[in-house]
Amino acid sequence: MFQVGDKVLYPMYGAGIIDSIEEKEVLGVKGQYYLLNIPHVHMEIMIPVGKAEDLGIRQVVNCEIIDQVLSFLFQGDTDPVIFESNNRFYRDINKKKMKSGDIFQECEIIRDLTRKSKLHKLGMEDNNMLNSACQIITSEIVQAKGIEMEEAVEMLQEVISRAKEENEKQELLG
């Protein structure tokens, strides 16, 4: 069970803080609810305490994990299936990765779609998925490191830009 003030990640929405735990009656049934404030989207969500785990809600990772994620963001291979246009199978895999709330799987989405965008323009669905993954990662960086959103966005964009530059150098060398 989470406590008031805990920093948590709600997959598909991002990281926030539990403002309170309250007893509420919803549809005639009383229960305990987390009131989760997700600042980067200006949203407050009521989550049944008993369903938090099923929804993939977890503690925000620590600073060391954030640093590790940013260091290795573009490590690993991309499944070639992603480069096929309109591949619904791969989009479904990305949606599962997002819903998992696993920061490493969310980073795979950023890595793979960034690589795909180098070859050809992303479609609307892929572009939205990339933007959502970036938003969720940056919201977790904000909560983990206690920094402003602009600084977190800058950190992520710097990693992405550096990876693009390294990739271009490798292509020129051979």
Rank of each mutant, 00 (worst) to 15 (best):
A15L: 07
M1N: 11
M149Y: 12
K164C: 03
A15N: 10
E25K: 15
Q170W: 01
E108W: 00
I160C: 00
M155A: 11
E166T: 01
I57M: 12
S161P: 00
G28W: 13
R162C: 05
K118Y: 07
I103R: 00
L9R: 08
G174L: 06
L156G: 02
G16R: 01
Y10N: 04
Y34A: 02
L9K: 06
Q143L: 12
I45K: 15
E140K: 02
Q59K: 09
N127T: 11
Q59G: 03
G76M: 00
M124V: 09
R88F: 06
H40M: 11
V81K: 12
Q32C: 03
E106Q: 13
D112F: 02
G101T: 06
C134E: 15
F74S: 00
I82Q: 09
G5Q: 11
Q157L: 08
K96A: 08
E140D: 06
K116A: 15
I136R: 11
H40C: 07
G174P: 04
D102T: 01
I137A: 05
P48T: 04
D112A: 04
G123A: 05
Q170H: 05
G31H: 04
L27Q: 14
V29E: 13
A163H: 00
A15I: 06
S71K: 14
G5D: 10
K24E: 10
